[in-house]
Design a protein around this nucleic acid. Sequence first.
DNA 1: CAATAGTGTCAAATATTCGTCATATGCCCC
DNA 2: GGGGCATATGACGAATATTTGACACTATTG
Lengths: 238, 238
Amino acid sequence: MRAKILLVEDDASLIELVTYNLEKEGFDVVRTGDGEEALTLAEEEKPDLVILDWMIANLSGIEVCRRLRRSPATANLPIVMLTARGDEADRIRGLETGADDYMTKPFSPRELIARIRAVLRRLRPALQGGQLEFAGIAMDTTAHRVTRDGRTVQLGPTEFRLLRHFLEHPGRVFSREQLLDAVWGRDVYVEQRTVDVHIRRLRKAVNAGPAGEELPDFIRTVRSAGYSLDTSPEAQAA
Amino acid sequence: MRAKILLVEDDASLIELVTYNLEKEGFDVVRTGDGEEALTLAEEEKPDLVILDWMIANLSGIEVCRRLRRSPATANLPIVMLTARGDEADRIRGLETGADDYMTKPFSPRELIARIRAVLRRLRPALQGGQLEFAGIAMDTTAHRVTRDGRTVQLGPTEFRLLRHFLEHPGRVFSREQLLDAVWGRDVYVEQRTVDVHIRRLRKAVNAGPAGEELPDFIRTVRSAGYSLDTSPEAQAA
DNA sequence: CAATAGTGTCAAATATTCGTCATATGCCCC
DNA sequence: GGGGCATATGACGAATATTTGACACTATTG
């Protein structure tokens, strides 16, 4: 998932420089140079992070920061302040008002990116790792939660590990033996056919539609070879 | 609760300066100038944050950072790198290796404190003596008060810490072992099943409705994995 | 120092998940 | 079209994991 960044800045050349670098790094950028508008955009666009200049029109950056923190909808939005005021007192004031990081101009775009990533790494683990996704099936490994098209799917521990293994190796075909090694453990003695049963349980749970009916199967049976996530174009489209 | 800070630094005058300022601000400080020892202390002392100098004995700061991130026990420990190397490339390397913030010498102690607070505000909201809230359950960590839908909930000390831990990491699943480490302390020998009992007591206290009846459970049991705050959409709606 | 609240263990009661089997169904090749 | 396999499916007792109530013991409080 791409992270969306709200850039609040009124210096045209800086906007260009920062936008260019952010987009190059795979972020979506929304821009404004106006403090009031920044507050509106923060609510409406639901950005993952705000870069906030101190000197902007209508409302100072620090005031925007304060208001963002006060509104429940944006109280947790990560904020990186970015400004020409290099004064120690200002930096401290910015941080105490609720900014997560503070950089003074002139700054290195690469360092800005690195700091943004550091903040996001903390705040949106989902944007980093722990999150696996495939054709509408999403797994959060830290929360131990699986959803299909947004609806929670109930899985037993073994089915959970099995699905994780498939999601970690999309498309690849695994023999029953390989699956037993990877999912059950190398030294467990279990019938190979047991895998079939768990594949069945996994299919049943994940393919169950909202109205009790069947969604397209996401596991491909490869006769005489094993199973894999179905990465064929038809399955993807579904 | 006072936050404990591990200061990894070998310049005596800096140690003194930083320690003085941290203690004045109400932090507990643990110190070492040795990289290997830093790793041991990070595990044993369970600090809330590490201040890490780049140039230290035995292992470089960056290597310590890398290893802290790699070990599951310390992977989430906040790290502020602090060093004379002001090189942009070094700063970026530090941030990319997993540091949460990066300051270069010479630095202002007040700014260091402000940055530490900014990081802790994110990572350990409870240390700031704030308000934690989730789905109608509110905890005032300074007043040691918990309410559900406005009604006060009576909790024992252990249940309180347990709930706080969940509120600080919403949605994340913790094994019994992790909970014992985090809530009871690393060196306490207690049966893992004891966790179940406290989960039960916590549930009983918090889920008790006004008319003596049951509110929806806010803790999710993840079979064979542990427990978590229930952040599923269904639970949120309730 | 008595009263009360809080803790950690245990064991019985439940609840869920697992592995296997027998049978049904499908697929491929002759 | 008919073997001969391979996979799918439903059922079930066994194995695991969690919930719960009771109890003895330890802090804490006044």
